[in-house]
Design a protein around this nucleic acid. Sequence first.
DNA 1: AAAGGACCCAACCGCACAATT
DNA 2: AAATTGTGCGGTTGGGTCCTT
Length: 270
Amino acid sequence: MVRAPFYDKNGLKKGEWSPEEDHKLRSFIERYGHRNWRQLPKVAGLKRCGKSCRLRWMNYLRPEVKHGNFTEEEDSLIIKLHKQFGNRWSAMAKCLPGRTDNQIKNHWHSGLKKRGKRNPTSDHVKEDSSCPSEATQNSEGESGAESILVDTPANMILESSTLSPATSSNTELSSFEGTFLPPAETYQAQSSGDFWNNPFVAENIFNQDGYPSSMENYGFELPFPFDDVYYYYDDFLYDLMQGHLRVNGLKASQCCDQWRDEDHKVISTL
DNA sequence: AAAGGACCCAACCGCACAATT
DNA sequence: AAATTGTGCGGTTGGGTCCTT
């Protein structure tokens, strides 16, 4: 159904996502959110580019994404919205809760297009006040749709990078469907740790099988294979440790310069 | 039953734009 | 102000499945 997995010249995996990769990505985002897609795969231990991770999450793994056939109601709404928005799939997606721009685009090209042309006045859906009108669209761009999105609790997951239930890392996708998600503030309070914002505590980062912790000797752990990422390890760690990581109670930034100067041997002295 | 065309959809690519340095 | 980086969007592709002949 989808492209067979392969590795590009940079060693990044392309093509179909394995269940294990899905699990890693989902677990990581549920726990730490997504602030920086480019760094995320490195930290989460995925051999994927950030763009690929973002796409997988946005189009498939997000708990609020509906999987399954479009209803008649949805079909009619899409036809109507297409008249209003043209091929602006993301704008249309904002009016169809649980549907992604990619889903709508695919669905349109796989039949609805013909139906829309064949039966141009067939929409039996009432005027949807949650979507910006043509006039609003023209004068204010997508602002109307944006405000709707941000106010919806389920969409907090999109707007906030820090949310995530700290528990459910093993939950299957289907179990999320229809789940009401509390606001982001609640998640932050419940979360076991915010990888991107708060001082990082070693125990909070998962160190999965197959990803040995090369920094264990220094009192903290990181979740990816040392050998695979060593070429960017220095810069990445430096950024990572700017106030986000504690080693034996000290902010990593306090020892970072020393660590560099002494060729990475410093931390044992702390 | 087999062939082949149509359909479907996940994933990729390139571009544009906003934010940051 | 210019360059760089990160993100989002729309178009396209690859390949599995379904349907028709």
